[in-house]
């Protein structure tokens, strides 16, 4: 798309027709930082390249791009695999800060899994935000799957419990539980999330089988704090990166993959039911580096 051309173009401008030296690498720093990789990850990647440059292993722009792509891909290669869907129901809990796209992503994920022939059920455990359950209900209708909800202000743990109970009772394959957006710095809200997690486990051994953190690709370095603190509270199994249809590159996901070894399960590329894509490290790296 548009984004890719822009970035690729900027590297070509930097690298084509020039000897690749330290100065080029400095200019490259701009490309990486501007893609939100962060100062530290950028320094690590560029540090790795400096050696190759000194050893004259990188002759031209193509070689430089290739090395960078490989560097990024390698970081994603070290992440864990998302858990396989062996339990029935396979329970997925979706968490994240406010407005990142949790509810929408659940709609898309439900649609994706339904298309694979799985029976899906949704749980509206965001009982706080105005019309959150109504929003999820509309997604459930679009997908054509059942939803468990209670009235606004109800205990979110109770909704989560009911969802797992109903999922077991009705023999569904996957139950996906939406939670209210919350900042990772709010202790009481993070405690509430822990409780939801615990209650789900009480209803079904081993559940939730997946805890997915939804991250907005527009987010800068704060995403790293988000990932760390949600991971501490409810032990994440993976990430979904949304809003990659914009101009943001979501480069902070590289730092998160490097530090927490969390895989990116899917990426969101729009507001429609089918705007969910599997994550492809190579494609992601290419979108950043061209």
């Amino acid at each position: 798309g548009k984004t890719r051309e822009k970035i690729s173009g900027s590297i070509d401008k930097i690298a084509i027709g020039r000897k690749i030296d330290d100065e080029v690498l400095d200019e490259l720093e701009e490309v990486l930082v501007t893609a939100d990789l962060g100062v530290k990850t950028t320094a690590e990647l560029i540090g790795g390249l400096r050696g190759k440059v000194r050893r004259k292993e990188l002759a031209d722009a193509e070689a430089l791009k290739g090395a960078l792509r490989a560097g990024i891909e390698e970081i994603f290669g070290r992440t864990a695999a998302p858990p396989a869907m062996t339990a029935k129901p396979h329970v997925i809990m979706v968490v994240g800060v406010n407005g990142v796209g949790k509810t929408t992503t659940i709609g898309k994920l439900a649609s994706h899994l339904s298309a694979q022939g799985k029976k899906v059920m949704l749980g509206a455990a965001d009982t706080f935000r105005a019309a959150a359950a109504e929003q999820l209900e509309i997604w459930a209708q679009r997908v054509g799957c059942p939803i468990v909800r209670q009235k606004e202000g109800a205990d979110p743990s109770a909704v989560a419990y009911d969802t797992v109970e109903a999922a077991v009772g009705r023999g569904v394959d996957v139950a996906i539980i939406d939670t209210a957006g919350r900042l990772h710095t709010k202790v009481n809200l993070m405690d509430e999330l822990r409780k939801i997690h615990r209650v789900i486990g009480k209803k079904m051994d081993g559940a939730p089988h997946e805890v997915i953190l939804v991250l907005d690709a527009t987010t800068g370095q704060n995403a790293l704090n988000q990932a760390k603190m949600f991971n501490e509270a409810v032990q994440l199994t993976g990430l979904i990166l949304t809003k990659l249809d914009g101009t943001a590159k979501g480069g902070v996901a590289v730092a998160i993959a490097g530090e927490l070894k969390l895989p990116i399960c899917y990426v969101g590329v729009g507001e429609h039911l089918d705007d969910l894509r599997p994550f492809d490290a190579r494609e992601f790296a290419e979108a950043i580096f061209g």
């Binding site: 930082v33 501007t34 893609a35 939100d36 800060v97 407005g99 907005d216 527009t218 987010t219 800068g220 370095q221 704060n222 995403a223 914009g246 101009t247 943001a248 590159k249 902070v252």
Partner: peptide, 12 residues
Amino acid sequence: ADAMTGQDAVNV
């Protein structure tokens, strides 16, 4: 605008 926005804030 979200205070957590990264480098893209200027483009937006």
